[in-house]
Structures are given as structure tokens and as C-alpha cells.
């Protein structure tokens, strides 16, 4: 790449960022056509996120005025965005902003972190990024009094679990995971990410089959909208890293958690190899149990590059 190309690239990026940021130019152009099952947008974190949600018909498809919204990013580790173990703060910010634009009454960004809470909110950059929208919206509930037992009627192995009260009270649940590998679950995407909304996730490791219990959990914590942050992909050594980070500048959005996860598995390299969605057992089981579709080849996909 020579300098001219570089500058051109930067200028285009900037334009799109402005367009995306303003949210005025974009919808008109890309709203045309039927709403796809999957939206895949390449671009900067903020612009790509906005465009991906707009491709699905915009946030008003998911959030009605007065709704209570919970956004579930990954912010379980005290590492900065470039390490790709947490969701990019810009992705979270844009989702939250779009919820607000759609008239949401209460927007919370919640995760039950593994590492010390303060460090996670600080180092992930997510709390800071969300400040312009609301001073107080990012929280890391860890005390059991903030959780409530919930039955899982469709659970195969896990039939009940304690879920954050705020999540149970919410109208809309948005999964906003980063795309990363996971040493136990293969990948940690929207479905695995739901483990960050419950009190006791250890039990899913030691008592239950991890993959099956993830699917069980997702029968009650089914995200209304999934936005996978593939702007950076932690391709090896997830979930904590450090591992190989692929700069993919991609955001995947869908109404279907399983489809979004399945697309992310097939779209990126993991440990230097290509995998089919069915090679991740919780995705395969979710598909078999009718939670969503992993046969991405049969789904309508709209992919654009910004």
C-alpha cells in the first residue's frame, strides 16, 4: 500500500464513520431490500455496528419506546480492547446509543466478571465509552442478592439457575460478545456469553456437560438481537488470552443467536484452521434443538464493506 492509497483509505473510513456516526445517511441507502437473517459489515467498530443493526431494520425493530434493555458484552477480563478478550467499547457504545435513539427507557450494560470488577470496567474501556450516553449504565453485579432463581423448562441437564434480576425484568436482551476462542467451549460467542448473566457458572463446568448446559441456558436467555464484535478476533488462547488477534474489522448481527455464532465460527480462522459451525457442539446442539439455525449457507446474508 502506498501513501496515496493509505490516505484514500483513511478518508473513506472517516467519511463512513461520520455517516455511521450521524446515522442519517446510512439507513436510506442500506435499508433498501428485505431484512436479511444475517448482516455482516466490514468497517470501523462504531460504523460497522450501526450499519449492521440498520441492515436488520434498525434498532426500532427490537427496542420499543419505554423498553428496559440489557446489553451483555464481554468484559470479564481487565485487558484493553486490542487484546480482544473483551467487546470493543465502541461497539457497546453504539448499541447503547441506538437503544436510546429507539426510545429505550432504561439501558444497562451487565456482565458478571471473572476478574476484579473495577479493573474490568476500567481496563475494558466500556464504562468510559458509555459515559456520554449515561453516567451510570455499566454494572457488574456479583452479589447473590442481585440474582433470582429461574426455572429452565426446556433444560436437558440444567433445569434451573440464578439469573440477574435486571435481566429477568428487562424487555429486550442484546448479546454483544467479542468473537473469541474458548479453551473449553471452542468459541465464546453470544451463546457462551450468556454465562455472564448467571450467578453460578462453575456448576456448568463441573456438574453439567458444558455444551449442553449452554444450550439449556440459552432457552431462557435468548437474545432478541445479537451483535458479534469481530473487529478483532481472539483466534487462539481464549477466553483470556493473550493469543493471536486477527484484525477482521467485521461486525455480525442477527436476530438468531445460533446463526450469528455459526457464521462467526465459519467466517474466521481458529488456531490457524477453518471450522464448520457444527464442530462446536453447543452450536450444533442448539441447531438440533431448534433454538436457531447453524446452516448459514441456507440463510439470507447481507454483507457490505464500508
Amino acid at each position: 500500500m502506498n501513501r496515496r492509497e493509505f490516505l484514500k483509505c483513511q478518508a473513506t473510513g472517516l467519511l463512513w464513520m461520520l455517516a455511521g456516526g450521524s446515522g442519517i445517511l446510512l439507513p436510506k441507502r442500506i435499508m433498501a431490500g428485505p431484512v436479511p437473517d444475517l448482516a455482516v459489515v466490514k468497517g470501523s467498530p462504531a460504523a460497522a455496528t450501526r450499519a449492521a443493526v440498520e441492515l436488520l431494520g434498525g434498532m426500532k425493530q427490537f427496542v420499543k419506546p419505554g423498553n428496559r434493555v440489557v446489553i451483555k458484552p464481554n468484559m470479564s477480563f481487565p485487558s484493553p480492547p486490542e487484546r480482544a478478550s473483551n467487546t470493543h467499547p465502541e461497539v457497546v457504545r453504539v448499541i447503547a446509543a441506538m437503544c436510546k435513539e429507539a426510545g429505550a427507557d432504561r439501558i444497562l450494560v451487565l456482565d458478571h466478571t471473572l476478574a476484579p470488577e473495577e479493573l474490568c470496567m476500567e481496563n475494558s474501556g466500556i464504562r468510559e465509552a458509555c459515559k456520554p450516553i449515561s453516567e451510570k449504565m455499566v454494572f457488574t453485579p456479583s452479589d447473590e442478592s442481585l440474582y433470582k432463581t429461574k426455572k429452565i423448562p426446556k433444560g436437558k441437564v440444567m433445569t434451573s439457575t440464578d439469573i440477574m434480576k435486571e435481566v429477568l425484568k428487562s424487555d429486550v436482551l442484546i448479546a454483544a460478545p467479542v468473537a473469541k476462542s474458548h479453551s473449553s467451549a471452542g468459541v465464546s460467542l453470544s451463546m457462551k456469553g450468556m454465562m455472564g448473566l448467571i450467578y453460578n457458572r462453575r456448576v456448568m463446568h463441573w456438574r453439567f456437560d458444558l455444551h449442553t448446559s449452554i444450550v439449556d441456558l440459552c432457552t431462557v436467555l435468548k437474545a432478541d438481537l445479537t451483535v458479534i464484535d469481530g473487529t478483532r478476533v481472539l483466534s487462539t488462547n481464549g477466553p483470556r488470552g493473550p493469543g493471536k488477534v486477527l484484525n477482521k474489522n467485521t461486525v455480525i448481527a442477527s436476530k438468531d443467536m445460533v446463526a450469528a455464532d455459526a457464521y462467526a465460527v465459519s467466517a474466521f480462522e481458529w488456531y490457524g484452521k477453518r471450522f464448520k459451525p457444527g464442530q462446536v457442539r453447543h452450536i450444533r446442539e442448539a441447531h438440533e434443538r431448534g433454538l436457531g439455525r447453524m446452516d448459514v449457507e441456507n440463510l439470507t446474508i447481507r454483507a457490505i464493506d464500508l
Partner: peptide, 27 residues
């Protein structure tokens, strides 16, 4: 060293923890 994108440890020949071998015939 965060911004140097450290490489993870090298797993033995294409070993990816958590993934299953592809023997499904791709259905």
C-alpha cells in the same frame, strides 16, 4: 506489551481446544 499482540502458545499440529473433529460429513 498489550499492543504488541502477543502470540499464544503453539498447540500441537492443528490442535484447537474445545472444537470437535470434522467427521460429520458436513450436514
Amino acid at each position: 506489551a498489550y499492543d504488541t499482540q502477543p502470540e499464544g502458545k503453539v498447540w500441537g499440529k492443528g490442535f484447537a481446544p474445545g472444537f470437535e473433529d470434522d467427521n460429520s460429513g458436513g450436514d
